[in-house]
């Protein structure tokens, strides 16, 4: 029981650590910026601002992330810590245009 409590507290403290924020804009079904550079092994907060009237779903199989961002609204997604590599993401509702990638260096 005590071990579980310690694991829980470590998890909560680690989770509560503030993460750097990167702003992403969705406009005309495109992500701005479409390439996001982040450092390896760092947790990042993505603040996605959907400026289109239509909803968009931020999706990435590589990042294991999926979230609906309603039209004219914002959404927050945490990613990382990640190893070095490239992680594509796309807008599921407009996949032909809404594409981007997270580049971890």
């Amino acid at each position: 029981m005590r071990i579980l409590l310690i694991i829980y507290l470590i998890t909560m403290v680690a989770a509560a650590t503030a993460a750097p924020t990167i702003n992403i804009r969705i406009h005309n079904h495109l992500f701005y910026p479409s390439k996001i550079n982040i450092p390896a092994d760092t947790k990042i907060k993505l603040l996605i601002d959907n400026q289109d009237p239509t909803a968009e779903e931020f999706e990435s199989y590589e990042l294991n992330r999926e979230k609906v961002i309603p039209g004219h609204s914002k959404g927050v997604i945490f990613i990382g810590p990640l190893p070095v590599g490239e992680y594509p993401f796309f807008g599921e509702f407009f996949p032909k245009t809404a594409q981007g990638r997270v580049i971890v260096k």
Partner: peptide, 26 residues
Amino acid sequence: LQLLIQADIIISQVPLWNSSGWVRES
């Protein structure tokens, strides 16, 4: 649990394996 990890309520961990070479999620 995936949603709670995405919300940073549960800490993100290194994946145990990567089976995308066999079956891609997409």
